[in-house]
């Protein structure tokens, strides 16, 4: 069974006037099909306003499709009775680290999800400890979130989701507001999670360097999926990506530049080592 499946998913935002009449609708997600298998690491790329965040919010039933359907772990998100199961099995981390930490102490925040699920007290403590440990934040358990760096706050947010024991974690531009070091911290935590817990990861971002390890990359533009494939397949199409207001990793750009100058380097180089090896045969 797919972890996440979408079938011709359409979502429209409605703009209303003061009396509540719909004056216009705009389509944020347009006929999107998705098949995400358990344990996959999927990256969704797209410029600001391409519909990628709107799509992400469907995976947690924060939004439900205007038309078409979305299933998370086999459950239809438009069915009211599944909503809490879906939110438990697909956890979500948002962009702004300040606006998703609810409690004034790190460990209490991580416990917030399990509390809502009605987990017995003793087990909450176990889960909190385990989750904080797996993102490397255990030594900050008694700290106030206000005193943490951006990267640390995002790791706390990830721990908060982990404590709900999800099968899948959706990260909606988790690094957009962080500095390079914070970004590294968060990505390291995510990578470790994948190794240890075999959790499905859906990473939404517009930093190209973050997606080179993904199993599958999806590119969105104007609510459509316009490209998909392995990172190598995607990043070998430099010009097309630029058309969608995106970019490629620096190394890929350099390889592309060399190819344009007539050098025989393979397309879709993603890592420094690959390029160096190709050049120093």
């Amino acid at each position: 069974m797919e972890m996440i499946k979408a079938d011709k998913l359409i979502f429209e935002y409605e703009k209303r006037d003061e009396e509540g009449n719909v004056i216009s609708t705009s389509r944020a997600v347009d006929e999107v099909d998705l098949d995400i298998k358990p344990g996959d690491f999927i990256a969704i790329l797209g410029h600001n306003g391409s519909g990628k965040s709107t799509l992400a919010k469907h995976m947690n039933a924060i939004l439900v499709p205007t038309d078409g359907s979305m299933w998370v772990d086999g459950k239809d998100t438009s069915r009211e009775e599944h909503i809490w199961d879906i939110r438990q099995s697909a956890g979500m981390v948002f962009q702004n680290p300040d606006n998703q930490i609810i409690a004034a102490v790190v460990e209490e925040d991580v416990g917030f999800g399990p509390e809502n699920l009605g987990v017995p007290t003793e087990e909450i403590w176990e889960r909190v400890e385990e989750s904080l440990r797996s993102v490397g934040m255990i030594s900050y358990r008694h700290h106030s979130p206000n005193k943490l760096s951006g990267g640390q706050k995002q790791r706390v947010a990830i721990a908060g989701v982990l404590a709900m024991r999800p099968k899948c974690i959706v990260l909606d531009e988790p690094t957009a507001m962080l500095d390079p070091n914070g970004r590294k911290e968060v990505l390291k935590s995510v990578a470790e999670l994948r190794q240890k817990e075999n959790i499905t990861v859906i990473l939404i971002t517009h930093y190209m360097e973050e997606v080179v390890d993904a199993d599958h990359v999806i590119v969105m533009d104007h609510g459509h999926i316009v490209m998909q494939g392995t990172p190598r397949e995607i990043f070998s199409q430099v010009e097309e990506l630029k058309r969608y207001r995106l970019d490629v990793p620096q190394v890929t750009l350099l390889a592309d530049e060399l190819r344009k100058r007539g050098l025989d380097v393979p397309a879709g180089i993603l890592k420094k080592e690959e390029l160096v090896n190709a050049l120093c045969r």
Binding site: Q250, L253, L254, L275, C280
Partner: peptide, 25 residues
Amino acid sequence: PQAVYIMHELKERGLPVFTDATLIE
């Protein structure tokens, strides 16, 4: 910048490049 690292690595591997490039071009 990434370019700097690539150039240094190339030099280490024996390709006689100048390592002062900071831009991709």
